[in-house]
Design a protein around this nucleic acid. Structure first.
Length: 424
RNA sequence: GGAGAAUUGGCAGAGUGGUCGAAUGCGGCAGUCUUGAAAACUGUUGAGGGUCACACCUCCGGGGGUUCGAAUCCCUCAUUCUCCGCCA
């Protein structure tokens, strides 16, 4: 969430920049400022009341010590009113803080200057494109047919076991997926990202910290029967980022770079139709994530580094891809700037999103209370960034479709050491 | 799941009703000494709110309570450790 002090000082600018998201935040911003003012007033009143009763308590202590119990009892009566007052003020203050926070939770991150204006994904700006789109043989098929033909992914079996959107990977399909995971993790660790394995369920505080709650409650699976505060992770970003929740890092501890492999669980309510066929949209899928905690001065350099890193992976996989800078209307709630990577699926004749790399600036760090001590000894919020490297099912779909030949599916060269076979 | 013990500042560890945001040690930072470093010595060293700056307020696992006053007493939840049970 945005910092109140920042809103206070850059009111007009915040409102103006939020219009890129096609929202008029002026009323909310005004309300934030009013609530904050009222909050501070109440805080001051409460502080004064407490100060008075503290000093009386000290007097009482001193009187008892010198044996003047009757004088002490007189003072005791004075504190009754103060106690009532402070109790009331405290309640008012809590209400005010809650109202302020609830409002702040509703305000999305301020888009970066380079974010294009626009409403839908059609307004996203293509900033890079690379890789030859292969010419396929006349009998080329979409992946959902290929996987059936070669018996490497079984959607019906997954439906039997769990439900639609929970595929079973079999034989060489399972091996290829495992190969991709290992390859991604190796690339990421070679680039300096520390590998971590994290819980696949998170508590409320964690989901709140990265911004899944309160806004996206319905999109997460909820383990409520066991513990109402437990959710299945929609992305490894949630547990991995929360490693740093509440931390106060030293200047020298920055940057932090992590990579993690996790399954991801998403409700995806009401998603049916051609665009969600096969591997295109699932309730459970695997993903390798990269994540950085950065000094504010370096975060956009870091974002470029992450983009370049993912480029490198796609170049090695020899997949045709493009990079989009998301427009204001398509930008995620918590993000200031996001680049999406899309692989061209030749057989489906469309682009598939396989990675999303974002700079959240201080938006998550503020909720997480993730700070560092700068060179002057001042405490500042860190910037957090993350990206997929990569989302497995769609990379898999891209490989199956782009690498298909009339007598089988080729395996990208870099993966052969991992799969142990070169053709399906 | 059952029984017992514990949770204090970056770490270790004192503190059982007032003068405790908290002794002491280690670590960190600055200085003295040194050609430099080490050692030694001296000083300094938690966070949040608030203020132009002070003052002041809050925080000793979380929440609630008792009291004029709580790190200290009570309730409750969480976590950790030990023993038992169960188990990949």
């Amino acid at each position: 969430m945005l910092q109140v002090a920042f809103i206070r000082e850059h009111k007009e600018d915040v409102i103006k920049r939020l219009t890129k998201r096609n929202i008029d935040a002026s009323q909310m911003i005004e309300e934030v400022i009013t609530l904050d003012e009222e909050r501070r007033q109440l805080q001051t009143q409460l502080d004064n009341t407490l100060a008075e009763s503290n000093s009386i308590s000290k007097e009482i202590g001193a009187l008892y010590k010198s044996g003047k119990a009757s004088e002490a009892n007189v003072l005791k009566e004075k504190t009754t009113q103060l106690k009532d007052d402070s109790k009331t003020l405290n309640e008012q203050l809590n209400d005010k803080e809650e109202a302020l926070n609830n409002l702040l939770y509703k305000i999305p991150n301020v888009p970066h200057i380079s974010v294009p204006t626009g409403n839908t994904d059609e307004d996203n700006e293509e900033v890079f494109r690379e890789g030859a789109i292969p010419t396929l043989h006349p009998n080329a098929k979409p992946h959902w047919e290929l996987v059936k033909e070669y018996d490497i992914i079984d959607f019906e079996l997954g439906t039997k076991i769990a439900g639609a959107g929970f595929p079973v990977y079999k034989g060489k399909g399972a091996k290829l997926q495992r190969a991709l995971i290992a390859y991604f993790l190796d690339k990421n660790t070679a680039a300096g990202y520390n590998e971590v394995q994290v819980p696949h369920l998170v508590n409320e505080a964690s989901a709140l910290g990265t911004g899944q709650l309160p806004d996206k409650d319905g999109q997460m699976y909820h383990a409520a029967n066991v513990d109402p505060s437990l959710y299945l992770i929609p992305t490894g970003e949630v547990p991995a980022t929360n490693i740093y929740r509440g931390d106060l890092l030293t200047n020298t501890q920055l940057p932090q770079a992590l990579t993690t492999y996790t399954p991801c669980f998403r409700v995806e309510a009401g998603s049916y139709g051609a665009h969600v066929r096969g591997l295109n949209r699932l309730h459970q899928f695997d993903k390798v994530e990269i994540l950085r905690v950065e000094h504010p001065d370096r975060s956009y350099t870091a974002l470029d580094e992450m983009v370049n890193h993912i480029k490198g992976i796609l170049q090695e996989l020899k997949l045709p891809y493009r990079i989009l800078r998301l427009c204001g209307g398509d930008l995620g709630f918590t993000s200031a700037l996001t680049y999406d990577f899309e692989v061209f699926s030749t057989a489906q004749d469309r682009w598939l999103e396989i990675s999303s790399v974002s700079n959240f600036e201080t938006f998550q760090a503020n909720r997480l209370k993730l700070r560092f001590k700068n060179q002057d000894g001042k405490i500042q919020l860190c910037h957090t960034l993350n990206g997929s490297s990569l989302a497995l099912p769609r990379v898999l779909a891209g490989i199956l479709e782009n690498y298909q030949t009339e007598d089988g599916i080729q395996i990208p060269e870099v993966l052969i050491p991992y799969t142990g076979f070169n053709k399906i």
